[in-house]
Amino acid sequence: MEILAFGVQADEKPLIERAFLGLEEIRCLDVFLTEDTAPIAAGHEIVSSSVNAVLGAPVLEILAAGGTRLIAQRSTGFNNIDLAAAERLGLTVARVSYYSPFSVAEFAWTLATAVNRRIVRASNRTRDFDFRLDGLMGRDLHGRTAGVLGTGKIGEAFARIAHGFGMRLLGWDVAENPACTALGMEYVTRERLLAESDLITLHVPLMPETRHLIDAAALKSMKDDAILVNSSRGGLVDAAALVGELRAGRFTGVGLDVYEAEAGLFYLDKSLEPVEDDTLARLVTFPNVLVTSHQAYYTRDAVGQIIDATVRNVADYRVGRRSENVLVPRA
């Protein structure tokens, strides 16, 4: 029976097809799973969704009515899925609980160093054969303070890189990570971390209690020359409040791989359409802001692990086996 995979990127398609070869028949679609596209899944028992699918009750109801029984999401985060509705409709839901933390941590560092050393501006200039250094001065990160909000596997990987840079480490989480304390990380309150850090990076899940973790008050408490990086979930940062601080001339740089209203925008070509999101339109105009399209996870290593886990999730569903990836078990 054919599996239908939504939101498959061109680089991802051959990896998915190779992983399922000889195991399951799978059809890859480049369209994302939405209320408009969900009817396509009619007759497919298993559907695989991507990170930017919005699986609220309306979408889940369409899938269930069409015969879908398993949603295998190819991501770790699941704040986009109405789990209560899925359970009510008898849908099994599985995710990928683990993939390479280095992919995200390394990309977060890429954003941090890019905005610090004005790499995008420098690259744009040299393409025009403008080799001046005006406006390109960065600063050493060695000896400065890195604040890591969320010290799980990704936060730990980021902290190890920061330690290699010779940075002082501050951490904030519900529980201390012994590997981070071994690096010399000091766990402090969120308020102290924001006030003392030169580089702040977010590696916490998006939940009701973490939505707008970086709100207007948090932004104002940061150093004027701080660097802020978010490669976790867009809803952690109040983007409108961030625009206000940037307009006031604050922050050395901001690197955002995620955006709170990215659904319906990221992974799509909107270059020929009017810009409807005023906040995002403002963000990308600031010379000290770098916005990328939720690509921190997008390495061959991490995507390969995500696909392998998805294959296992389908196999587990077939035999009624439950793993740590299952969010809503089979009825």
Rank of each mutant, 00 (worst) to 15 (best):
A217M: 00
A182F: 00
L213N: 02
T110C: 14
I214M: 12
A114L: 05
L83P: 10
T113D: 08
L202P: 08
L213R: 08
T210F: 11
A86P: 09
G171H: 03
N116L: 08
P101F: 04
D130Q: 09
V115F: 13
G152H: 10
L213M: 11
A179C: 10
L170H: 08
G171T: 01
A216E: 15
T110R: 10
H163L: 03
R88H: 14
T76F: 09
F107P: 00
R118V: 06
F165P: 07
A114M: 06
L133K: 10
R125G: 07
R121E: 15
V120M: 12
T76N: 14
G155R: 03
E87P: 03
V188M: 12
T181P: 03
T210E: 01
H212M: 11
R211E: 11
M137E: 11
A218H: 06
V148M: 07
E209D: 03
F131M: 01
L199I: 10
D82H: 05
M207P: 00
K153F: 09
T151S: 09
A94N: 13
L133Q: 07
I81P: 03
P178S: 07
P205S: 12
T145V: 12
A175R: 12
A217C: 04
A218I: 03
M185D: 01
F131D: 03
